[in-house]
Design a protein around this nucleic acid. Sequence first.
DNA 1: GAAAAATTCTATAGGTTTATAGACAAAGAA
DNA 2: TTCTTTGTCTATAAACCTATAGAATTTTTC
Lengths: 211, 211
Amino acid sequence: MKAATVRSRPNPRRRSAEILAAAAQVFAERGFHGASTQDIADVLGIRQASLYYYFDSKEAALEEVCARGAEGYAEAAAAVAASTGTAADKVYRLIDAHLSPMLDRAAFVMVFQRERRYLPKDSRRRVGRFSRNYERIVESVLKAGVAAGEFRRDLDCRLCALALLGMGNAATHWFNKEPGVTVERLATEFTRLLVDGMTKAPRPPLRRVAA
Amino acid sequence: MKAATVRSRPNPRRRSAEILAAAAQVFAERGFHGASTQDIADVLGIRQASLYYYFDSKEAALEEVCARGAEGYAEAAAAVAASTGTAADKVYRLIDAHLSPMLDRAAFVMVFQRERRYLPKDSRRRVGRFSRNYERIVESVLKAGVAAGEFRRDLDCRLCALALLGMGNAATHWFNKEPGVTVERLATEFTRLLVDGMTKAPRPPLRRVAA
DNA sequence: GAAAAATTCTATAGGTTTATAGACAAAGAA
DNA sequence: TTCTTTGTCTATAAACCTATAGAATTTTTC
């Protein structure tokens, strides 16, 4: 399968990418276990058995789809963390970076989010580590915000990071169903919601509203 | 199956409830399509075929599990909406009510959240309506907060409601994995995060932080 | 304790699904 | 052209899974 020749790869994996995209689409639509290899083949207009030229097993296909779905998240977040700017601005960019992959590989991202738990043990562990690392980076941005005096000192950074990511992940459920939702708009609204809640609050205590 | 006698139902569905709980547990763990009726039977220590005394099909079991998982949400939210108090307080109670079912029927709730899309068309439509109604109620609480002058006038209530619910739903993923997380603590933190972001802000514009 | 109801069992039909083996075809490289 | 690589096909084994039928067993009611 893997050619060992020194140089002869004119079109390395163009078709392979199409196969993978079909798998991602079908896994996203019907769930990993709800999708059959026949379903994938139907999308491509080829025979079910032909798929096995591209992957060794359905689970291996899931692994590849998940890998692409997870790609870049940690790197983008790390870049934000390492950049300069206010913590508030970084939060915006974190959210933006978290949502952006939905634009060009929604199916992959959704499969990574929802189906990774069906990965075989080994790769599940690997993506588990990956996710925790990603969360850690997000958390570190919040912590830095606290350290810089920009966010309130009693902010629960861990919980807040999870909340932020939860909010972002939820967007996959309605991103293409809600009218007029764009990444920028979402990032702006989410940031606005969260940042005020994190910011050191020279704000009067919750006031009672008369009627 | 349904006794037509006038009165003789001493213990209606005690066993039935156990069967359903086992189904919920297995569906939650392995996903609807990843779970076999054999898996459910194993949990109960009975034979696979015996399950069909309790439900007509695997999908019917999913329907019942989802129904229990969705139970009470709209009612609780409606009660909050109809109650008196500040909008901020209502948000707290909305979140609390949203998270509370995780305490006593986590598996059902998780299955409702994640597997309802595999319901047959009819019941899927039904739960779709149910969910939209629930979202609508949450949104109405936010709108009321705006109308009362408590929340900022340009708040995107729809998006904010979705964000709130997304945050809440995400909690199911780590509720029993994160140490020291309780419903009260979550509701408190989430509310604090969101309410400040929604509240009319007599707050200075985001300040630059010098190093 | 006998009748009725509830619950579980055995056995199995019938369908679906993953995956393998090996042939066939096309297209580029030598 | 001939060889090689790439991609697809047919056919099928083997496993698995849902659901039904009807018998057997346990529990409840009278």
